[in-house]
Amino acid sequence: MKTKFLIIILLMLNIKLSANENIGIDTKIFKNLRCLVCQGQTIAESNSDFAQTIKIVVRDKISRGSNEKEIYEFLSEKYGEWIVYKPKFNYINSFLWISPYIVLILGGYLIFKYFRKRRQ
């Protein structure tokens, strides 16, 4: 009974673990790149000359078999990490990625503390 129920739920969720299929890998990369000569636009959104050129280069790299990470590395080397919108997880950026969760855990703990007091 229970397993049946679980299967039904999983079916209804229609789980698809793969990434979004609607957009190709190139668009995904463009959305994660900053158009350096624009004001806060991504390469995907921008019509600028710079963006057009980067699009050509990225598509060219994809067709030559580079993966996402290699493309980010290539561009970071030329233009700095600034060009990538999603900062990679490294020593410098660790606090950026961790601190929201510190707040989450701390907040949960503080609320929980008031429950415990009551039981005593």
Partner: peptide, 11 residues
């Protein structure tokens, strides 16, 4: 650290 990073929508 004297490095420029971007924090954007994917984050």
């Amino acid at each position: 650290y004297n490095t420029n990073i971007s924090v954007g929508p994917p984050f």
